[in-house]
Simulated assay, not measured.
Amino acid sequence: MRPIILASASPRRADLLRQLGLTFSVFPVDIDERPTPNEAAAHYVERLAREKAFAGLKLAVDPKSLVIGSDTSVVRDGDILGKPDGKEQAAEMLASLSGRSHKVMTAVALAGEHGCFARVSTTEVRFRALSESEIRAYCDTGEPMDKAGAYGIQGRGGAFVSGLWGSYSAVVGLPLDDVAALLAEAGQPVWMVWNQSGEKLG
């Protein structure tokens, strides 16, 4: 089995990879995450996922390593909503999502000696109508500060979601179906590691 590296400091992405039963190393990478002028959201998240995967590959000791890079953006009316700069911007983002639908685009890239391949997952998420008081209370928890679109569906922000069409794990930060497909295409399907320790689940 080739070593797997997650090129991300996100604890949510690490938790999702563990959910697949994978053993991996975490190599946080630092890249310029600013979109280029008029860059489409799908192109933007895929570009960043690829750049993160390549940056992680440069840090790998074993040349046969497989490196996973990922990026998530919340897209409202074609506008990319990144991580908020502070409480005020977080509140503005949440107010703009209140009572309506938006898209969450998450790209995952797998880089290795085989090259780099990527997939983009698009999920539609609908928020119920939010009051100003609950928006403020949520921002005061600090949870929105490091999350695209200023909410975490796996945390308190899940209370805002009234509907979801697509991949839940992609909204959290990593589309597990795409990760499994990319690893299988690289000759390392995730099921090969299941039950190697004899562990019983469920």
Results as ranks from 00 to 15, higher is better:
70 S>I: 05
70 S>R: 02
71 D>A: 07
71 D>H: 11
71 D>P: 08
71 D>I: 12
71 D>M: 12
72 T>I: 14
72 T>Q: 15
72 T>F: 10
72 T>A: 06
72 T>K: 06
73 S>V: 14
73 S>F: 00
73 S>G: 03
74 V>L: 14
74 V>N: 02
75 V>C: 01
76 R>Q: 04
76 R>M: 07
77 D>P: 00
77 D>I: 04
78 G>Q: 12
78 G>T: 10
78 G>P: 12
79 D>P: 00
79 D>S: 10
80 I>Y: 02
80 I>K: 01
80 I>P: 00
81 L>M: 15
81 L>N: 03
81 L>C: 07
81 L>W: 00
81 L>K: 00
81 L>S: 06
82 G>E: 15
82 G>A: 14
82 G>H: 10
82 G>C: 07
83 K>H: 06
83 K>G: 03
84 P>F: 13
84 P>K: 13
85 D>K: 13
85 D>P: 01
85 D>H: 09
86 G>Q: 02
86 G>I: 00
86 G>E: 03
86 G>L: 01
87 K>Y: 02
87 K>T: 11
87 K>L: 08
87 K>V: 08
88 E>H: 10
88 E>S: 13
89 Q>L: 05
89 Q>D: 14
89 Q>A: 15
89 Q>C: 03
90 A>C: 09
91 A>T: 06
91 A>K: 11
91 A>Y: 06
92 E>N: 10
93 M>Q: 08
93 M>W: 00
93 M>L: 11
93 M>G: 09
94 L>R: 01
94 L>V: 12
95 A>L: 08
95 A>K: 12
95 A>M: 06
95 A>Q: 09
96 S>T: 10
96 S>E: 11
96 S>F: 04
96 S>C: 09
97 L>W: 02
97 L>V: 09
97 L>M: 15
97 L>A: 09
98 S>Q: 05
98 S>T: 06
98 S>G: 04
98 S>C: 03
99 G>I: 08
99 G>P: 14
99 G>F: 12
99 G>D: 08
100 R>W: 07
100 R>V: 02
101 S>Q: 14
101 S>N: 06
102 H>W: 10
102 H>I: 09
102 H>L: 11
103 K>N: 00
103 K>F: 02
104 V>D: 08
105 M>L: 15
105 M>R: 03
105 M>Y: 07
105 M>C: 02
106 T>K: 04
106 T>N: 08
106 T>W: 03
106 T>Q: 07
107 A>N: 13
107 A>V: 11
107 A>E: 12
107 A>K: 12
107 A>H: 13
107 A>T: 09
108 V>M: 07
108 V>W: 11
108 V>G: 10
109 A>F: 04
109 A>L: 03
109 A>N: 05
109 A>R: 04
110 L>W: 05
110 L>S: 10
110 L>E: 11
111 A>K: 03
112 G>Q: 04
112 G>M: 08
112 G>A: 10
113 E>A: 14
113 E>R: 02
113 E>G: 07
113 E>T: 02
113 E>W: 02
114 H>A: 10
114 H>L: 01
114 H>V: 00
